[in-house]
Amino acid sequence: MKKEMSAECAAVLGGISAYLDGELEATACDAIEQHCQSCPSCASVIAGLRDTIGLCRGAAINELPDGVKEKAQASIAALLKNKAR
């Protein structure tokens, strides 16, 4: 059976994105950190969120794939040639 979340945990997790984004005041940060020292469940969520954000921000978005890039370059060349006339 799923354990019901305490009001304190709900409050901590509700503000966790602001905490991770560095938008909270020092007192609010302290309260979250203190809570996490005695709450492995919230600590685990924060660690998971940190990893999730890291995974997104570390995405290796590269250039267009070859076939698409060639088409894009051809479209640019055609547009600029046409406008130059």
Partner: peptide, 29 residues
């Protein structure tokens, strides 16, 4: 700084390499 301090996730301990990595990642973002 305060912003850095708050964006560092300090769960269970303080001043770890992970803390610095997260702080730097936010600043880098």
């Amino acid at each position: 700084s305060l912003a850095d301090r708050c964006s560092a996730v300090r769960v269970g301990d303080t001043g770890t390499i992970d803390d610095v990595v997260v702080t730097n990642r936010d600043a880098a973002h």
